[in-house]
Amino acid sequence: MNYYRIPEMARKYIEYDMIQTHTELPQFPEFRTKLLYVFLSKHSTMSSYSELFSLVTALVQVGLDTHDMVSVTNQVKEMKAARSRQLKILAGDYFSSRFYYLLSHAGHIDLIRVISHAICEANRMKINMYQLMKQLKLTADDYVKRTVEIRTQLYLAFAGYMEESVNGAWPEILRLFTQCEVLLQEISSSETAQHFRESWGYWYVMQQANKDERKYLLSEEPDPSKIRSIWLKYKITWQLYQLLDASMRQLQDKLHSLDSKELSKELLSIGEPFIRYLSTPKVLEEI
């Protein structure tokens, strides 16, 4: 694989002093972007565009993720918080607009159409998921499945740009990597009560909890320490470790089954952070 430098290339579009000073941005979609770059690099004619295509897709994803961080209501009165909200909206629009500029200047008009369709599809999926959340009809399994589907939409749009020999493996490998990514982030968020309603743990507990616990979770301002005790009761973090371990094993099996041993080796190296995390003493104690 050629030297991977997409995060460095993206910095000049993402790292602005005003944004970094007044608001926070989502994580860079490292795993999905690196996967896309590796798969495109295998194409005999598309390999020369692997950096450009991976870069613009990452910028669009960062834009969408930045918009997702904007609070639903606009009732913020404190100036600092209001400025942060406004900058998230503007930054998300700016990041997303860069793909139009970069692809049009490179003459890839057809890809603009493909990515635009994927953006619409991802937003449609988000609306459906939010509706299920509002109606309390979402399960913990649905939460992971739908989150993964939303996060993979932009990258799945490149199925037609893959070399035929790897095209069939692309969707499943992308899904498994993204599932591991989602579960790893869920483990991190499970250790704090912040944004607990936007988590796998919340939907799992809503399925398993007794009437009083469910009522408490639905209250306006629940006590973080009480939420933490409920999470401990239902072993949320431990169960997420189990899910991540199972997903990683599925991913390894899939990668080992690839015909191309070179590709298998490259993809296994991308998944090493998951393996290292699951091998840490703290995680081994949990599991």
Rank of each mutant, 00 (worst) to 15 (best):
V72L: 05
P224T: 10
L278V: 00
Q27W: 07
L64G: 02
M69E: 15
H256C: 11
H105L: 09
K34D: 10
S188N: 12
L87F: 15
L25D: 04
F99L: 07
Q250L: 14
Y49G: 06
P273Q: 00
L35M: 10
L136M: 11
A82K: 15
A169I: 02
I230S: 05
L102H: 12
M9H: 04
Y94E: 03
I270S: 01
W203H: 07
V72M: 13
A157S: 14
S48N: 09
D68G: 13
S97D: 10
E220V: 03
Y100V: 06
L132H: 04
E266Y: 14
V148H: 03
G92K: 01
Y204V: 08
A159Q: 10
F53R: 09
F177R: 05
N74D: 05
E51A: 00
S257V: 08
Q61N: 13
L240G: 01
L243T: 01
D142R: 09
K134Y: 15
D17W: 08
T73G: 03
H43V: 02
Y277S: 08
C120G: 01
V182R: 15
L25H: 12
E121D: 13
I119P: 07
S219V: 07
A157C: 09
R197C: 06
L268N: 02
E262A: 14
T178F: 02
K254D: 04
M1G: 06
E221K: 14
Q179R: 15
T192M: 01
M125P: 00
F99N: 07
K12W: 02
W200H: 15
R124W: 13
Y277E: 11
K134N: 15
L174S: 03
A91Y: 02
Q61P: 03
I173Y: 02
L183D: 06
Y94V: 05
S96Y: 01
P7V: 04
I14W: 04
Q131E: 15
K282N: 11
S269R: 07
R98P: 00
D223W: 03
R175Q: 11
E221T: 11
T280K: 08
A122G: 05
S229R: 14
H195D: 11
K261W: 00
L184K: 15
G168P: 12
L232R: 15
V205A: 00
Y37I: 04
L176K: 13
H43Q: 02
M1C: 06
S264I: 02
V283T: 12
N2S: 13
L52W: 06
A246P: 12
I230R: 00
L263A: 10
Q239W: 03
Y155P: 03
K34H: 15
R124I: 07
D259A: 07
S229P: 08
E221Y: 11
C180S: 15
Y277C: 09
L35Q: 11
Q179N: 14
D141K: 05
Q61D: 13
L268R: 01
L258K: 09
Q135S: 06
A82M: 14
W238V: 02
E286P: 00
